[in-house]
Design a binder for these strands. Structure first.
Lengths: 227, 227
DNA sequence: AAGAAACTGGACCGTGGTCCGGTTAGAGTG
DNA sequence: CACTCTAACCGGACCACGGTCCAGTTTCTT
């Protein structure tokens, strides 16, 4: 099992990953064929071993067990190496999710309708929510664990890409609205932490979340479903 | 300066604060006259000193400087005492915010319109968003620092109260909708972390956030503002 | 072969959180 | 009021983890 990398080449040390101010251009394809940008042979090998070890830890003992030290030990590698490669814990977890993330991006950017281009925007937005909800339902532990603390929640590049996609669709549906801000609102309903809270802690079935998403999209699109 | 406490009596030790499964009843007035439930004299004194010390640290060196050890030292108290009293770091920060929180709750539960009862629900909802945005704009550091990590974000009692209020208003406005879930969505737009990201990191002025809130409420209420 | 750039690993630090032996407030009793 | 008893409280030693640093090693280039 191989994972793609979203780390670019890392200078000396203290420059893990830049916030990416304006990810106006969607990535995907930038570093897709070349799984390892320009990594030295030993570095690439260690990187692979670390991801493999981390994945094993997640599978066997849950995301909480993915301690930086545990991963390092399981990969027979020094702790510093883990940090150098992935920046911090979030970075490592994010890298673990990278594979499915890329697949998902490909699906809504270039896949078949209704998720991909070809269907009317409202239709695509509905499908997007459904897909997000289902994807988050699996991988929930990891998604939660990968979430950084408060101030950086909205700087995650992957999330920015998703949100931007929503904004683009919204502009086609309700051009007169503040689609940028509206996209944040809609994305809020698909937040892994919220999904976890509603399903695990309040026992709300996923189907109801999907219905709520559809209703929300309709409401925003200006066609109240039952009013 | 005295702060109200939202900690109930704490049994032996490892029971900091219960999740409060169904906060259907709004608090406010439960432990309002009695600032300290049944706290022993020395405990109450230490509690006050701790809050005072924490507030001083925030004022002088920012929320990041509020280390549990630093607070303990500044209050000339043992570290264990801080944890016993407030459960964890978020608990301490939450207690610091408690005063303004209570004031805010009082304002929309029993204050003058349009925030309080008396105005039509849509009007109250608009006012609620405005008030939240402005309140979060001050206190932003504290609000951010007080936010617990991913899985517990939605279990904060104070947030639950606010969200519940929104749900109640929504039920009066769009009874046919899934107001429970809709309230989560609306609250998402008022999340301190989002506000911080938009204003501090993307330079979006608060006024635009307020406009977006109004527009969102109108949209949800089924009366598209310009369509 | 040799030099430079990149990588490695583990010692080190600060912080959040736990534990438990010792201390004290304050109620009950005479 | 003095004494005693107990539950609650206190404090700081202790642990685990995330994150940093840097001296020594390895890879790649020329």
């Amino acid at each position: 099992m191989l994972y793609a990398g979203l780390m670019s080449a890392i200078p000396p040390f203290p420059t893990p990953q830049e916030p990416v101010d304006h990810p106006e251009l969607l990535q995907l394809g930038s570093a897709m064929a070349a799984d390892e940008p320009c990594l030295r042979a030993d570095a690439a090998r260690n990187r692979a071993r670390l991801l493999e070890a981390a994945a094993r830890l997640v599978a066997e003992r849950g995301a909480d067990a993915v301690t930086m030290e545990a991963v390092a030990a399981a990969a027979s590698v020094g702790k510093g190496t883990v940090f150098r490669r992935f920046g911090d814990r979030t970075g490592l977890l994010t890298a673990l999710l990278d594979h499915s993330e890329k697949k998902f991006q490909a699906a809504f950017l270039a896949g078949p309708p209704p998720l991909g281009p070809g269907a009317p925007p409202v239709e695509r937005l509905r499908a997007f929510g459904r897909a997000m909800l289902r994807r988050s339902a699996d991988e929930l532990d990891l998604q939660l664990a990968a979430e950084p603390c408060a101030p950086r929640r909205f700087t995650i590049p992957a999330r920015s890409v998703l949100r931007h996609h929503v904004a683009v669709l919204l502009r086609q549906i309700v051009p007169e609205a503040d689609c940028e801000l509206l996209s944040y609102t809609l994305m809020g309903q698909l937040d892994p932490a919220l999904i976890h809270h509603l399903t695990s802690q309040r026992g709300i079935p996923l189907a109801r979340l999907e219905d709520a998403w559809i209703a929300l999209v309709d409401r925003v699109a200006g066609a109240p479903p039952a009013g």
